[in-house]
Amino acid sequence: MTLLRDVVTAVLFLTGACFCLLGAVGLLRFRDTVSRLHAASKAQTLGLLLILVGAAVNRPLRDAPVLLLVALFQLFNAPITSQIVGRTAYRTHAVDRRRLFSDELADRLARDGTPLREQGGLTPDKEEGKNPDDEDR
């Protein structure tokens, strides 16, 4: 019985760690802040969830509620963090326009007469220092 439990925990741990790793890879490889948000919030949260569930399976019954509570907390708060960071990122032009297929928010803002302030386009990683928006290094 404990062997089965250990196997389940090991599988959950390894899968969770792989998701965390792939999330970190995405964090590195994606070109703009909002895309990195996808990797950070989705893959990392899933990885953490799997690891916490794996730990809850293996620990005595007293610990399981706290672990699951933390997992639930992360699950429901990661989207909040990502929405706030994403909003700030969009408003501070941290979106790579070259990779953007369509931007209906900019269209809507333009239609409303309050276009997003465009100062010579966005900053791909190579052109650091040329965009006056990048004061926050």
């Binding site: 999330g23 994606f30 070109r31 989705k42 297929f101």
Partner: peptide
């Protein structure tokens, strides 16, 4: 997301 990170990486298009 994991697949997009590995497969396309920096060339991923978004909307």
């Amino acid at each position: 997301v994991a697949w997009a990170a590995v497969r396309h990486g920096g060339r991923t298009r978004s909307a």
